[in-house]
Design a protein around this nucleic acid. Structure first.
Lengths: 338, 338
DNA sequence: TACTTTTGCTTAATCGTTTAAGCAAATATA
DNA sequence: TATATTTGCTTAAACGATTAAGCAAAAGTA
């Protein structure tokens, strides 16, 4: 019935003590008697007291909120990363605000502004594909709060970064395919301007060379890695005079498109062409044949990114520097490369 | 270099006017001269002034934050709903905080507490499957902020609800299957205690009856609708003496499990058994054969839920009552029922 | 000219919490 | 017994913005 919410003042009045004593009692200050603490907590419960976060955050200059910026939440990778962050940060008393850029640079900038406006204590982000202008990330840094990047990062920002070893992953994939007898391995990759995709391409080339196979430029393709790109590029590869006997696709979505084309054209997978994706999205195990893929250890990435943030806030004197934490990825072998 | 962030006080000092004047200038108050406004805005930009949201929210008793509670963000339905909400609320000056319950009642309660603690101006939620105890939702209501439910709601709470017409959807599905000549239609559904699944079951039964087909209890199954449930129940249906000629599954994930079993056992879809899912998840169009499904108009649901929230805050005198907005769903026909 | 109104600001209180400083009473120490 | 320390609180000033109330100067009106 009472319109107003209960404040520490109400509790103070009820017990005839000062609001300061109530505040301290609620925080288990050692200078408050056990008796008073008990009384305060009892009355707080009776009056259904809910602390006003805005007031305490304002006073303490700390919101206990962490902002998260991801390209999408409906990808298994990102949602899993975020879930782990939540778990770690929750234990440390932080809550998170999730925003998605939908791969749009403009939306990403808006999200960053929103988070800064909400006075988050730090930002953990993975950049949109479009993003090349880093000024909004510089803005975060100049705000003095920690910035942690994961998966899609940028060396130039000189901040903490958590990701997998894309270069080595390509080696693992190529060597697995070679072990199955493949000699002409194609790579449908992302654009080189994005660091992670460039690393995958470089890893692919070096692994091919290392194993004494020839580099064939017609087998190396750059694209946006959507399902449609996968279809188009696979169709194109099948039209080559000298078809590949394996295709390594740098994204599961594009790999699925490739698989659809292979199935439609009666190409047997893995007998005629072996196929490997990247990201270990759930559908890779659901389609026929199931697609081999790289598990990016999203849980570890989420956990470590969160822990890195916590380390930064606990040691604010430490100045932000480039600090890369690179995890090994794992090849999940399924029917498409068996 | 300056550790401290700029406040309106800094701007006031720089211009030798009062902080109050600065505040008003920034809000284009009519009682501040155009000259002063210009000067204030210039200095604000020069000093890189960022308004402190906590302070203004505290003072005005309004955070301009809307809390969102969803079971998962990695489902296409929920992420699409949230995306639309974001678009609508953004235009009205609101930002959103997304939290996920992972279908856990405990996590859902924690999320609600977090949101209330963050002083959100309202909560838009879809309940976890587990949730039967509504006390945390009552807590939101007693907090005096608007509560809007979507998809997974509860009549007992007497709040706004946006969802699709589950009962009618079942009719559309059953009649489509009958038009294809099906006579023994099975239903792998959710548990009746969840309102939406109960409605789908009731719709299924009424549609079967309406079309003069017999009700066979062995063809009506309740489950949690995971992929595994779909596999198990489909296996079970195939063992029946009198196999069904169509299966209507109340979730795409379970439908996928069912399809896997059908494919594995060499049952031809749609020739031998027709299959229809629910939710129109992207993978339904990716698997072979593609799965017919119900599009739940996630974008409309998100938009309307957000608009309903805005209506509530603009007319606070209006007391919360049961107000259901039911949208028509749409059957997307694909290969599995063609 | 004498008044009312408008303009353009200032003053000061406020939102709810935290916290440094202070103070009396109780307890410990010499 | 006299002095030092600890205990258990209170007082009051913040945090940064907003806003009701007020007031002098400028402009308008009779």
């Amino acid at each position: 019935m009472n319109k107003k919410r209960t404040t520490i003042k109400d509790i103070a009045n009820a017990l005839n003590i000062s609001p300061a004593a109530v505040s301290k009692a609620l925080h288990d200050d050692s200078r408050i008697s056990i008796k008073t603490k008990a009384a305060v907590k009892r009355v707080a419960k009776e009056l259904n007291y809910q602390p006003n976060h805005l007031a305490s955050a304002l006073r303490r200059g700390k919101s206990n909120l962490v902002g998260v910026v991801v390209p999408r939440t409906n990808s298994n990778f990102f949602s899993s990363v975020v879930e782990q962050m939540e778990a770690v940060l929750d234990k440390a008393g932080y809550n998170i605000i999730i925003t998605q850029s939908n791969e749009s640079f403009k939306k990403e900038c808006k999200n960053i502004d929103t988070l800064l406006y909400t006075q988050v204590d730090g930002i953990i982000a993975s950049m949109a594909n479009e993003t090349v202008d880093l000024s909004y990330y510089e803005k975060i840094k100049s705000n003095g709060i920690p910035l942690i990047l994961f998966d899609r990062g940028e060396n130039d920002l000189n901040v903490d970064y958590v990701g997998i070893n894309d270069y080595d992953s390509s080696h693992v994939i190529v060597e697995h395919l070679i072990s199955k007898g493949c000699k002409r391995i194609a790579h449908i990759g992302g654009y080189r301007r994005t660091r992670i995709f460039n690393n995958r391409i470089k890893g692919y080339i070096d692994a091919i060379t290392k194993n004494n196979l020839p580099i064939d430029d017609s087998l190396i393709i750059e694209s946006s890695l959507t399902l449609e790109d996968g279809r188009r590029e696979m169709t194109h590869l099948l039209q080559l005079e000298n078809r590949p006997d394996a295709v390594y696709v740098a994204s599961d979505y594009a790999a699925l498109g490739a698989l659809q084309v292979l199935n439609e054209q009666g190409v047997k997978v893995p007998e005629d062409i072996r196929l490997i994706g990247f990201g270990n999205e759930p559908f890779t195990s659901l389609v026929t044949p199931s697609i081999s893929s790289i598990e990016q250890h999203s849980k570890d990435i989420g956990r470590i990114a969160a822990e890195t943030f916590l380390k930064r806030v606990s040691e604010p004197k430490l100045k932000q520097t480039l600090n890369k934490i690179i995890l090994d990825a794992e090849l999940i072998i399924r029917d498409s490369s068996q």
